[in-house]
Nucleic acid binder design. Structure first.
Length: 477
RNA sequence: CGGAGUGUAGCGCAGUCUGGUAGCGCACCUGCUUCGGGAGCAGGGGGUCGGAGGUUCGAAUCCUCUCACUCCGACCA
């Protein structure tokens, strides 16, 4: 299509039918975001050597696989491969929040200082808060969290106890000016976080809201292939009465952890419950909280020894990927967040806040799932499901067989990254192992003589010869 | 914020002590030969040596200031 026609189409409202004539919408537009990709057209600057600024394995691998690029300390650009993973993780978080009855909103990154002065945290937050002045010299800040703002939003929209309970969340970039950012996206200054806020009329209802989030977190992390152990946590500067951290076990974790070996036997994937069934939810939470699990901050050696038999005393390290708090009225009172009760009297709402470090999870998953060759993506968060390797670009039979499978996978909606670049086999294998797609389909003249492709599982390393016409079926069954 | 260190090509590094006009590996480009676990040969492109000031005939190298980044500690999704 010529530029001229395009411009006409865009600019000329006099011809309303032109656009649809030029761009007939025939069934293909479904909202499906799956995009097949040829490596020859992709942007994936992979590195052979570890960049020297990276210390831990996830940081090294993310840089080597071309997922991110550092712009400043704790501040990253997300390149196509990394961004796909980030989006997949974000979507799982979103789906599980929605399922638990939370409502998605989106608050701005920049907030006015007044709200924070009202809660008393403007001064308390200290230098971690990035403070900005606008052109009118008004004090603003780049939000490190959103309790103040969400409470204000809620207050303005809800007056009656009949409007409770409510749970509002958003997934938004935060900025905390950490003294020492490190470990890549695991401890950045700018980071993507899901934060949810619950509002309830009574202590009991608030507890149920907390429990629902607790369960949704178990499900969220399980879907990403992670076992995140809930541990009783300090409420820290944010304050509140009840709090749990969710930690992914990984040798490189920042916190030392002590926990009951029974957690290893528990099946996170079986976390299934009716969120409206208060007792069932409480019981499920109880089954996780009744076992000993604590970070080094909260660890009580005597209690550990009393409650856990010696062979089951597990110690290790963990990465905090989620943190939930029940506040009671700690924030609602100073901020005047009240509703009118059935008796006509105002009552401060019971609130809680619930965070998941979405961008941190990208690093956390790599920490928990990699080997010497590179990343091993769990299927649910993999940037592509299948890496299709043409071992001999230019060979007519190889080119044809690859293209056929590529298009067939594409037609079936399987995320596929097609390595159609020229190059030796070794480099292709190394690159594909590095970026860690769950499955590799390897096609070259040797196998084609017998009409077969090789299907390799990245995690187990298992290879299998599969007849060419069976390959696509392997990923669509 | 205390302590330690590093800035030289896209990435990893040498050269700095002892000043003389910038080099190696990988990556990239061209050609030929290769081609199932990071190939070979030949040719080629790319760096105002983090920045500013100073010393000197001459500075990546010496001096002063500055900026950035990394690591260890105290703090955090």
């Amino acid at each position: 299509m010529s530029r001229e026609i395009l411009r006409k189409c865009v600019l000329t409202l006099k011809e309303p039918g032109l656009c649809s004539r030029l761009f007939p919408l025939k069934g293909r537009i479904t909202g499906d975001t799956r995009i097949p990709m040829r490596l020859s057209r992709y942007f994936m600057p992979i590195l052979r050597d570890d960049p020297k600024e990276a210390e831990i394995v996830s940081h090294k691998l993310m840089l080597r696989a071309g997922m991110v690029r550092q712009e400043a300390a704790g501040n990253y650009s997300w390149l196509p491969m990394g961004f796909r993973v980030l989006k997949k993780i974000e979507q799982i978080v979103r789906e599980e929040q929605d399922r638990a009855g939370a409502l998605e909103v989106l608050m701005p990154t920049i907030q006015p200082a007044e709200l924070w002065k009202k809660s008393g945290r403007y001064d308390a937050y200290g230098k971690e808060m990035l403070r900005i002045k606008d052109r009118h010299d008004r004090e603003m800040l780049y939000g490190p969290t959103n309790e103040e703002m969400i409470t204000d939003i809620f207050r303005q929209g809800v007056q009656s106890y009949k409007d409770l309970p409510r749970n509002l969340y958003h997934i938004q970039w935060k900025f905390r000016d950490e003294v020492r950012p490190r470990f890549g996206v695991m401890r950045g200054r700018e980071f993507l976080m899901k934060d949810a806020y619950t509002f309830d009329v009574s202590r009991e209802a608030g507890q149920h809201a907390y429990n629902k989030m607790f369960v949704s977190y178990l499900r969220t992390f399980a879907r990403m292939g992670l076992k995140a152990v809930p541990m009783r946590a300090e409420t820290g500067p944010i304050g509140g009465s009840d709090s749990h951290e969710f930690l992914v076990l990984a040798d490189t974790g920042e916190s030392g952890v002590f926990f009951d070996g029974d957690f290893h036997a528990m099946d996170w994937n079986k976390v299934e419950v009716d969120y409206d069934d208060v007792n069932a939810v409480a019981k499920l939470v109880e089954s996780f909280t009744s076992k000993y699990a604590a970070t080094d901050e909260k660890h009580d050696a005597a209690e550990f020894e009393r409650r856990v038999p010696a062979p089951k005393r597990m110690t290790g390290r963990g990465i905090e990927v989620g943190h939930i708090f029940f506040f009671g009225t700690k924030y609602s009172e100073p901020l005047g967040c009240e509703v009118q009760g059935a008796d006509g009297k105002k009552v401060a709402v019971q609130s809680g806040s619930y965070g998941i470090g979405v961008s941190r999870l990208v690093g956390g998953i790599i920490e928990a799932s990699h080997d010497d060759a590179g990343i091993i993506w769990p299927e649910a968060v993999a940037p592509f499901q299948v890496g299709l390797i043409n071992l001999k670009v230019g060979d007519a039979a190889s080119d044809e067989a690859c293209l056929k499978i590529y298009k067939a996978l594409q037609a079936k909606g399987v995320d596929v990254l097609f390595d159609d670049k020229e190059g030796g086999a070794g480099g292709k294998f190394a690159a594909m192992d590095l970026i860690g797609l769950p499955w590799q389909v390897i096609i070259g003249p040797r196998g084609l003589k017998d009409g077969i492709a090789e299907v390799k599982n990245r995690k187990t390393g298992a290879r299998e010869n599969v007849a060419l016409d069976q390959v696509v079926g392997r990923f669509t069954a």
